[in-house]
Amino acid sequence: MTLAIVDVGCGNIGSVGIAFERFGIAPLVTGDAAAIASADKVILPGVGAAGYAMEQIRACGLADTLRGLAQPVLGICLGMQLLFEHSEEEDIACLGILPGRVRKLEAAPGRPVPHMGWSRLQVHGRSIGLRDGDYVYFAHSYACDSGPHMVASADYGREIPAVVRGGNFLGAQFHPERSGEAGHRFLKAFLDR
């Protein structure tokens, strides 16, 4: 199996790559459209700012490639947010693969932003390798809206979509590569798709 990790010059590619190496997979880290299109599975990672990431995706000529992928694709954290139509972070248009918008989390007393740490999941969909009550690791200041695409959620002042799914596209707001055994199960379910 070939697994491509989309490299647009930002993002936490180190730990994502290592997580897949634990499954005996040597991921191909690439910004090349042809290599991404021909991979069996594609990871869109992301730590950083949405504006910079979208700029890099466009500069590498990857926006249409990513939209046109038919194989299983997993967006992680910012990579998941980029799947939506629009992000409030720098008010930018994203890939528009999934319907909906990404909004800033509101800080409140006792609820600092970023939402950072291990939150408990409610699982609404099947076959994602996660169970109700699993704790997974979040580190984000923006989140997408709830909607029909949401298959797992966490609570942080409002309902935070933790996993979204639309066709062959899967997104995780949390960091499966840093979520211990639950994260491992989630990645395994993705690889088994």
Partner: peptide
């Protein structure tokens, strides 16, 4: 913060 996000 600009390049990697505040959470980093």
């Amino acid at each position: 913060a600009r390049d990697f996000g505040s959470q980093c």
